[in-house]
């Protein structure tokens, strides 16, 4: 999101957007996730710029519907939700606090910066979000949602999901 002086009404919009949880991972909001990029006024029309996480993520339609509902509740009826693709969404935008919320929820937070992603290199073991052990196995790179992979911990013997660095 862009850093600029916010007007009182823009602050209200951001505050309201910050109350919308991710539909699949309710412990973090769509603002924490970095999906909301900017809020602007074009005359009477409120423009909210969002960026998709994964290109084919089905949650995007839900994001738009939730944003529309929340803004409608605030009385902002002239609304446009606009998709932007550059810069590309990355898990690097997740704050330390958001990552800790994920871990407490039982989802291992992203461990690598995407700038460190090498196409043809393997990723090391992902630490278990419950016991912290690094003695873990990858079960599958693809889980219940596009953004998570499946792992098991060899020490506490629990399965867990990893929010893939992306």
């Amino acid at each position: 999101m862009m850093t600029k002086e916010l007007t009182a009404v823009e602050e209200l919009v951001w505050e309201r957007l910050s109350m919308i949880p991710d539909p699949e991972i309710p412990v973090i909001t769509i603002v924490e996730l970095g999906v909301v990029r900017d809020v602007q006024w074009d005359g009477e029309t409120l423009k909210i710029f969002i960026t998709p996480t994964y290109t084919g993520c089905p949650a995007m339609q839900l994001f738009v519907a939730e944003i529309q509902a929340a803004m409608h509740d605030q009385g902002f009826d002239k609304l446009e939700v606009i998709h932007v693709y550059s810069p590309s969404w990355t898990t690097d935008w997740l704050s330390v606090e958001a990552k800790e919320k994920l871990r407490k929820y039982g989802i291992a937070p992203p461990v690598l910066k995407t700038s460190e992603m090498n196409p043809f290199e393997e990723v090391g073991n992902i630490p278990c979000p419950r016991c912290g052990s690094e003695n873990t196995n990858l079960k599958s790179q693809f889980g219940a949602t596009a953004c998570k992979s499946l792992h098991t911990c060899n020490d506490c013997h629990e399965p867990f999901e990893y929010f893939k660095h992306f």
């Binding site: 550059s86 590309s88 992603m117 196409p119």
Partner: peptide
Amino acid sequence: NDELAGMAARFLKESIYHQRHSA
């Protein structure tokens, strides 16, 4: 082309995970 570059940056990350899996 910025728009194309932004799309490709996202697609690339998806393809990296695909490639790891298929390899």
